[in-house]
Design a protein around this nucleic acid. Structure first.
Lengths: 168, 168
DNA sequence: CAAGATTGATTGATCAATCTTG
DNA sequence: CAAGATTGATCAATCAATCTTG
């Protein structure tokens, strides 16, 4: 039913050294994330002409009205400079608008244009479909939920302690 | 004993939609990987003057004698051009040598210099220590092993089907 | 002066084209 | 011509400096 499902290791399979497991997991995590991100990005580029970070920007802006450049930078763990330039490109393409905050002239609210909204809604179908094929179909629900919960925990720990944040 | 350990979700906690879980997991996976990679890289840069990809290159070459540029590109899922330039930088720094393959003049074997070996051995201590602090200490052994096994499975599936490979 | 964002300079990654050797 | 690698052009991320507003 689920392709290549693997069982949770029994106690005997747990390596003596947690550090060695952590090093191996780091490697698997990084290479898996790279390939998965590439694969999803390939599909988005082929079908919609945008790359993965652009899709993520558009979706974030769609789902969080009144978000600003700094909000995106924090969410995606990249510098505000890179974020500002990314928004420039989305604005040039006609998918995003900057709207000056009347209450604080230093920053702008970001909002989608009609074209941007149409695009992100279409791209989201591709995105979800691909993740289902590349992820859900390979794991049984328990594995998926368990791994998702662990990653969410690890992520929240690094966010809470502000580890791994970019410079500026 | 283990900080913030989380239990494997019970059946009732499993969301109805696997696709929604996959989308959420993708987000946690990508942001966690970004922060973890940044954090590890920060430590390596501060203590040893190298960035994370450089450490990974050096360790790969140390552990796999007679490896070539194409081998590293495949292992790290980046283009051969980027790999070649990365090796140029490591060679300029005096940590890596290219040795022409006598049996095939098109490619070179990569090997560490003495300085490179000293560096990677020292950096590996930092690397392992940081991963222990950022990863092992947050999870109980079962969680760690289970998540590691799942990530290894997912990675091997993408590698087997050559999904998410770079262009050139 | 602090906060938010933008800009400019450098570095690094990607892609395509090229070079060399099998 | 194919395989392996390098080079050059372009694009994007980073970091630092600057600008503007609170």
């Amino acid at each position: 039913m689920y392709a290549m499902a693997v069982n949770v290791p029994a106690a005997a399979d747990i390596p003596a050294s947690a550090a060695a497991t952590a090093v191996a997991m780091f490697d698997d995590l990084v290479r898996y994330e790279t390939r998965l991100y590439n694969a999803v990005g390939d599909g988005l580029r082929r079908r919609h002409g945008i790359v993965a970070p652009q899709f993520e920007f558009l979706r974030y802006i769609r789902d969080r009205p009144d978000s600003r450049v700094g909000d995106l930078a924090a969410a995606f763990v990249i510098g505000v400079g890179a974020t500002s330039k990314g928004i420039n490109r989305l604005e040039s393409s006609g998918w995003v608008r900057r709207v000056r905050d009347p209450a604080d002239g230093r920053s702008s609210f970001l909002e989608l244009t009609d074209a941007g909204r149409t695009l992100v809604d279409a791209a989201e179908h591709t995105f979800t479909e691909q993740l289902a094929a590349l992820l859900s179909d390979l794991l049984d629900p328990g594995q998926l939920a368990g791994t998702a919960a662990t990653l969410a925990l690890l992520r929240s720990e690094l966010e809470r302690t502000d580890v791994g944040a970019p410079v500026g």
